[in-house]
Amino acid sequence: MSTKFHVSLKWVLLGIGVLAALIPFIWMIAGSFRSEADLFAAPERLLPTTWTLDGYISIWQELPFLRLLLNSFIFAGVTTVLCLLFDSMCAYALARIQFRGSNVLFWLVIATLMVPFQVTLIPVFIELFHFGWLDTYQGLIIPRATSAFGIFMLRQFFISIPRELDEAARIDGAGHLRIYWTIILPLAKPALATLAVLHFMNLWNDLLWPLIVTSSTEMRTLPAGLTLFGGQHVTDHAVLLAGATISLLPLALAFFFAQKYFVAGIATTGLK
């Protein structure tokens, strides 16, 4: 009897959770098709009474939309690839090679995880100026091409791979490069895929960084470009929500197609 009660309580709670998770998105997407008057006349409605495309039309007309989209893909895509390479190399060194200073390096990596970005904003901006990297792709990408989080996560994963595997390879005369490339990386594919998804997601969503590095519209990423619609004085809900929906869309699509790596991926590989 009491287990029955527990089971139904569980599903009631899960049901509430699902509603809470979904309602903001339904409201956001529906809101992007609602006029200001419609939105305010019936705030308790989730869906519009009349549909309008005005928000999307203004974005399409006033922004070099495809260029922003391309920039977002270049920034998030290239940075993710570099990040996976550098993170996994560093994690390999920390997890599989015993060398002097590896402890220091590990603590250095962990420590950088703890620095809020706002602290380093001005020094980094001045550095980028001295490198001549402001408003360029390399300026956007290189400083973001590694992440302490990724190194930490992959190191934890690499440690769990049995050492016998690389010892066997070493007996066959394989060096670190080969062990890394042909043994460890293939075994870590699921973890790398998951990390790729997390990186891509964070980079895609990043707003402050592209705003700092770029200034011309041609170099802007999509979220940075969309800030043009949030005004000091005038806020147009439909445009803001349309912008939010557009920048969410590629991630949402990726999520549906690569769900395995978002959710099941981590689950089947285990994070040890």
Binding site: F99, V109, P143, T146, A148, I151
Partner: peptide, 17 residues
């Protein structure tokens, strides 16, 4: 080898953080 493998990440972290 350890330092070489770690180098790209460590350089970026040192320069930019």
């Amino acid at each position: 080898p350890g330092w070489l493998f770690a180098a790209p990440s460590i350089i970026i972290l040192i320069v930019f953080i």
